[in-house]
């Protein structure tokens, strides 16, 4: 029964940990030809009563994954590197185009739409979540 629930959750694209963290709607934008960097997006829900933070992301497919934020101020788009992404208790944080995102160098074997890439999210409370992020060609 538990296995069935896990499978159902996986098929719905939701991965949750026992400590009240859940990841939804993870996806990675297919890199246009020649693009050296790729971006990944997801939503993290912290249903616990404790503040947490995303402190690192790792993947066997990428040499490294950075947490970034795009910000457009006075019409100028800028990118910032974040050491940690705060996840307030009872809150939900979107990593979405034009805002927070994961940034990683495009590997030599360029992932294409339809592939699924494992990402491991590391949190400030030492917990981890694994998620399969499909590569998509979308806005």
């Amino acid at each position: 029964m538990r296995l069935l629930l896990v499978l159902l959750a996986l098929s719905a694209g939701i991965v949750s940990a026992d400590d009240g963290l859940a990841v939804k709607n993870a996806w990675i934008r297919e890199a246009p030809p020649g693009a050296s960097m790729m971006a990944g997006y997801l939503t993290i829900e912290n249903t616990s009563q404790h503040d947490n933070a995303l402190v690192a992301v790792s993947s066997p497919v990428f040499s490294h994954v950075m947490i970034h934020r795009s910000e457009t101020v006075d019409g100028i788009a800028r990118m910032h590197h974040l050491e940690r992404l705060p996840l307030p208790a009872g809150g939900s944080v979107d990593l979405a185009p034009g805002g927070y995102h994961l940034m990683m160098p495009t590997p030599a074997a360029q992932p294409t739409a339809g592939e699924r890439i494992p990402l491991t999210l590391h949190f400030a409370d030492q917990s981890e979540l694994q998620v399969m992020a499909p590569v998509k060609k979308k806005p």
Partner: peptide, 17 residues
Amino acid sequence: YTHCPDVCPTSLSMLAR
């Protein structure tokens, strides 16, 4: 610029739409 992973592909996809 092409090395821009987030804003540029988002805007160019939007323009294609």
